[in-house]
């Protein structure tokens, strides 16, 4: 029981990173990027496959992240070179990556002996997730406030304004999508570590979750500054994940598993209604 609760915390940290991906692509770069689903699964499956095969976990983390970055680059190159709409470009990447994800996911069956994946306790995993998430978020924050990050944010305002300030739009897209999907892959790797398992469908719905985290976060903390937006992502992911976790725990015996969806959505509606009505937590940040 206590492990499950700790896992909910760890999961919400990991999902907050997906929230940061969605924030970067939809709010900063102002494009629709669905690559997220693929990079979560890619990161999770490649990390799991590597650890199961006996590779050093730290190296596996780095390789998983680089796969995510690669997926982002692929979408960016389709957009900038073939001039495809970002939404379609990311669907193309999503489909292409599915091949690798399916292949990698097969390796899970090989997992027989105890590996790093299964030997770390829930508390240990939480600590690991916390350290990784905080470090990455700090770097993300620094990047968005750097000269480059500012240029990235200008780019979200359209091509004419960004070019008139001498900003290379394509370059911004490459770095932006690379970082965003690297974050998602990292989140995927963490999810694999937390849940001790990985599958080809682990990324499905990640984008929806990330979007939910961003939107709930925005409702609680108005995203006036980058710091507020990032904090909002974490708060949103935590609330959403906790809500799901709470329903799963308490509702399973009372009403049956098939009604979870409707209960979560009703709870979310009440939550958002109460947040929107009340005076927002303005002075907080």
């Amino acid at each position: 029981m206590i492990d499950s609760i700790i896992n909910v915390f760890s999961m919400s940290l990991a999902f907050a990173l997906i929230g940061l991906n969605v924030y970067l692509s939809t709010k900063v770069l102002n494009i629709t990027d669905i690559t997220c689903d693929a990079s979560v699964a890619l990161g999770g499956c490649s990390y799991g496959a590597l650890v199961v095969s006996g590779i050093n976990p730290l190296v596996s983390f780095l390789i998983a992240v680089s796969f995510g970055v690669f997926a982002g680059f692929m979408t960016a190159s389709i957009v900038s070179h073939i001039k495809v709409d970002p939404a379609l470009a990311s669907i193309i990447t999503l489909v292409a990556m599915q091949t690798f994800i399916t292949k990698l996911a097969l390796i899970e069956e090989l997992q027989t002996s105890k590996t790093f994946l299964t030997s770390v306790s829930a508390a240990g995993t939480f600590l690991l997730t916390l350290v990784v998430a905080l470090a990455v978020t700090f770097l993300f924050f620094r990047m968005l406030n750097s000269e480059y990050g500012l240029a990235m944010r200008v780019n979200g305002g359209g091509q004419i304004i960004s070019e008139s300030l001498g900003i290379d739009s394509a370059n911004m897209l490459w770095i932006g999508l690379g970082v965003a999907n690297g974050l998602s892959a990292l989140a995927g790797a963490l999810i694999t570590q937390i849940s001790h398992s990985f599958s080809s469908i682990m990324g499905d719905g990640a984008l929806v979750f990330g979007l939910a985290a961003v939107i709930i976060g925005e409702t609680i903390i108005p995203p006036k500054t980058v710091r507020a937006a990032i904090t909002g992502c974490f708060a949103g992911a935590f609330i959403y994940k906790t809500l799901i976790g709470a329903v799963m725990f308490s509702g399973a015996e009372i009403i049956g598993a098939e009604y979870h969806g409707i209960i979560i959505s009703v709870a979310l509606i009440f939550l958002m209604a109460s947040l929107n009505d009340r005076k927002r937590l303005r002075g907080l940040l």
Partner: peptide, 21 residues
Amino acid sequence: LENLAIASIHHQERSLIEPAI
């Protein structure tokens, strides 16, 4: 302020680490 800051470094190499302001 950020608008003005980005204008002051237009058409330049931008750093990923240096704060914009």
